[in-house]
C-alpha cells in the first residue's frame, strides 16, 4: 500500500449562516440573499476552486460543536442520515444530511491518539446526531457529499484544565492524525472547523442576512484576526502556536476548541505560507478561509 498523505489543510469556519446563505436544497430555511456574508461565501468558492486541482479521498474534520469532556471521540458508524437542527440558530440551520464515514481511518486515528497518551473513544451509536459544525464545514468545502468523512470531537481540555494543556493535547492529536493517514494510505483533506475571534452579538436583525448589521464585535478582535492571518500568510507557524494562548485569551477565539492547533500539528507545524482565501464577520465573529497546500509545496520543492 502506498503511504498516505495530507493533501491540503484548511481553516474552514462553520457559522451555520454560511450554509443558510448558500440555500442548499438540504436546508429547510431559505435565505434572502441580502449579502451580509458574501466575502466568506466568495472565499469558500475560491477554496473549492483551488481544491478542484487536487485528488483526495477523505475529509477529516475537527469540530467545536461536538463537545466532549471525556477525551477525544470519533464517529464510528459507516453511514449517518438525519436532520441536524442547530440549537442556537434553529431559524437558520435545519439541514437534512446523509454522509458516509471512513471508519477504518477514524479507528486508526483513535488508536494512534491513544498511543500518544490521549483519552479516545469511538462513537458507535447509530442514532447520534452529527453536529452542525461538521456538516457546515464539509458542505461548504465539498457540497457534493461524495466522499467519506472522519469527524473528531472537541475535547474540553482547554476549559477543564488550561489552554496550555489543551494545546499540547491538540498537537498530539494532530500528530496522531498525520501518522494514521500515512499508515492507511489515504489522501486526506483536513478541515479545522473554527472561527478566529469569536465574540458574538447577542441579537440579530429581522433579516439575519442584513449587511447593514454585520461587523466585527470590536476593533480588538479585528486586530488580532489580522495579526494571526499575517502570521499564516508568512508561514510563521511556530510563532502562531507560541502566541495561540494569548490569541485565545484576548480575542475569545474559537481556537480554544483546538481545531486550528490540531490542524497545524497534523501538518507537522510546517512553516509554509498559507493562502487566505477570504475573511469576513458573522454576527460579530471573525472568520477566515485559509489553505495550507502541502501538495503544491511538494511540487515546488
Amino acid at each position: 500500500m502506498e503511504k498516505g498523505r495530507i493533501i491540503t489543510g484548511c481553516l474552514a469556519p462553520h457559522p451555520p449562516h454560511l450554509a443558510y446563505a448558500s440555500n442548499p436544497q438540504q436546508n429547510e430555511p431559505k435565505a434572502s440573499g441580502a449579502g451580509a456574508w458574501q466575502p466568506l461565501l466568495d472565499a469558500y468558492a475560491r477554496l473549492r476552486q483551488s481544491l478542484a486541482a487536487h485528488d483526495y479521498d477523505v475529509l477529516v474534520v475537527h469540530t467545536p460543536h461536538w463537545k466532549t469532556r471525556v477525551g477525544h471521540h470519533f464517529l464510528g458508524v459507516p453511514h449517518f442520515e438525519g436532520l441536524s437542527v442547530d440549537p442556537i440558530f434553529p431559524n437558520l440551520f435545519r439541514f437534512h444530511y446523509q454522509l458516509d464515514v471512513d471508519v477504518e481511518l477514524a479507528e486508526a486515528i483513535c488508536r494512534q491518539a491513544q498511543a500518544e497518551g490521549l483519552v479516545t473513544t469511538m462513537m458507535r451509536n447509530p442514532e447520534f446526531r452529527v453536529d452542525y459544525g461538521t456538516i457546515t464545514s464539509s458542505h461548504l468545502v465539498r457540497p457534493q457529499w461524495d466522499l467519506p468523512i472522519v469527524a473528531i470531537s472537541s475535547a474540553r481540555t482547554y476549559f477543564d484544565y488550561s489552554d496550555e494543556v489543551g494545546e499540547r493535547e491538540m498537537l498530539a492529536l494532530g500528530r496522531a492524525t498525520q501518522h494514521a493517514i500515512e499508515a492507511t494510505g489515504r489522501k486526506a483533506l483536513l478541515l479545522a472547523s473554527a472561527s478566529l475571534s469569536h465574540r458574538h452579538f447577542t441579537e440579530e436583525p429581522e433579516d439575519p442576512e442584513d449587511p447593514s448589521f454585520e461587523h466585527i464585535y470590536n476593533p480588538n478582535q479585528a486586530q488580532w484576526d489580522q495579526h494571526v492571518m499575517e502570521l499564516m500568510r508568512q508561514g510563521q507557524t511556530r510563532r502562531l502556536l507560541e502566541e495561540m494562548p494569548d490569541f485565545i485569551a484576548q480575542s475569545v477565539s474559537e481556537c480554544r476548541d483546538g481545531s486550528l492547533t490540531w490542524l497545524l500539528g497534523a501538518l507537522g507545524q510546517a512553516e509554509i505560507p498559507a493562502t487566505i482565501h477570504g475573511y469576513g464577520t458573522v454576527i460579530g465573529t471573525g472568520n477566515a478561509v485559509v489553505e495550507w497546500d502541502l501538495a503544491a509545496q511538494e511540487v515546488g520543492a
Binding site: W66, K67, T68, R69, V70, H73, P87, I88, F89, T121, M123, R124, N125, E127, F128, R129, S153, H200, T202, E203, E204, I283
Partner: peptide, 24 residues
Amino acid sequence: SIIGHQMQADPAPDYWVVDEDFHQ
C-alpha cells in the same frame, strides 16, 4: 443560547437525544 434567551414552544417535541460523551 447566543441570541438572547430561547423558550421552547413546540407543543409536542418528539425526537431523541444521544449524549455527546455517554453515547454508549
